[in-house]
């Protein structure tokens, strides 16, 4: 039992170092040099009120808004307190039927032809704020009609809100649905 003393004391010392000093140090430095990111990248709307984080998607279903990816979070979609995916297996009949319903809903909303996968398949976190460039394009006609804009005007706005690959080669080009919709609201 000679080793019991170092076992207990080392545990205490490392709890202080790794569980106290280390996270406190990271928090201190982070809030000094990256205060906005450390706080959650919140965006503000009218009268400087916080209207959400640019990293956390929100649900949209009205015709005048661009629609995000489906979300499988518990109770209601895009619930930030219940992050997670559907965990549906690829051959699960209920899952195939759900995707079929989503494809039909898009066709009913005026989308013709093939449907981009990201617009009918749920994200991993259930909070994915982005959709692909293709998924934005199939929605431009609908949003333009609902807002009384021309498709050219809207396409320009979308292009200005398209994030390219990071450093020109990492990741996918994408559009932040929340940021774009907030911008659309602010124009009218």
């Amino acid at each position: 039992m000679k080793e019991l003393k170092p076992a207990i004391l080392l545990f205490i010392v490392f709890t202080v170092i790794c569980g106290g000093i280390y996270p406190a140090l990271v928090t201190g430095i982070a809030s000094a040099i990256f205060p906005k990111q450390a706080g959650g990248s919140f965006i503000t709307g009218a009268s400087n009120r916080e209207i959400g984080s640019r990293l956390i998607g929100q649900p949209f279903s009205e015709a005048k808004y661009f629609w995000p990816r489906p979300s499988a979070t518990a109770v209601f979609g895009f619930n930030p307190l219940a992050s997670g995916g559907s965990n549906a297996g690829p051959t699960n009949p209920a899952f195939i039927a759900t995707v079929g319903d989503r494809v039909k809903a898009l066709h009913d909303a005026g989308v013709t032809g093939g449907v981009p996968a990201d617009l009918v398949e749920a994200s991993a976190s259930g909070l994915d704020p982005h959709i692909s460039v293709e998924a934005v394009h199939v929605q431009i006609a609908r949003v333009a009609r609902a807002r009384g804009m021309t498709e050219e005007e809207l396409s320009k706005l979308v292009a200005a809100h398209t994030e390219g690959r990071q450093f020109g080669f990492l990741g996918e080009p994408r559009v932040n649905v929340l940021v774009l919709n907030v911008k659309l609201d602010s124009l009218q």
């Binding site: 995916g85 449907v115 981009p116 994915d128 990741g171």
Partner: peptide, 22 residues
């Protein structure tokens, strides 16, 4: 997923994946 391709879904299997990572 061939079962979804039949329904008119285009592209890679995106269920349970995040868009930004590629």
């Amino acid at each position: 997923n061939p079962l979804l391709t039949k329904l008119g879904v285009q592209g890679a299997n995106m269920e349970g994946k995040e868009l930004r990572f590629s």
